[in-house]
Amino acid sequence: MKARGTYSLFLIAAIAALLLALIPLPPWLAVIKPMGLALVLIYFALEAPEAAGLGHAFALGLCADLLFGTLLGEHAFRMLILTFLTLRFRHRLRFFPIWQQAGSVFALLLNDRIIDLWVRLLGGAPWPPLVFWLAPFAGLLAWPWVFLLLDGLRLRRRKAKP
C-alpha cells in the first residue's frame, strides 16, 4: 500500500515536471530553467528506489523527447545515466546534509549537461552559448525546495495510508 502511494506520487510528480517545463517563460528565465524531470528522478532514486527504476527513467525520457521534439532517445539516454549514478551512490548521498546533497545534485546535473552537449555536438549542432551552463546552478538552488516539497508529500501519503 505504502509503495503504491509513493509510486503514484512519483508518476504525478514526473508528469507535473514535464508539463511545467513546457510552460513558456521570459527568455532570460527559460535558459536557466532547471530540468524538473531530472530533479524528480533524483529524488525518487534516492528516497524510493523501488518506485523509480531505470525502466521508468527510460520511459519518462522518451516521453520528454516526444514532448520537446528532441532527437528520440536523447532525454532517455540522459535520464538513464542520471538515475543510474544516483542509484549507484544512493547510500552515500542519502546521509549527506541537504546542502552537501545539493552539491552532489549540481554535479549530477553538470554531468547531464555535458552528456547533452556531447549528444548535440555529435548531432551537428554548434557550441551552445555560455548560458547553457546556468541550468545546473538553477538546479542547485532548486534542489532543497524540491526535496522538501516531495518529502512532505511522500510522508503525508504514508501517514494517510498506514
Partner: peptide
C-alpha cells in the same frame, strides 16, 4: 539493464 537500455537509446537516436 543499464547497458541494454543505453544501447536502445543510442539505437533510437
Amino acid at each position: 539493464k543499464l547497458v541494454v537500455l543505453l544501447a536502445l537509446a543510442i539505437m533510437l537516436m
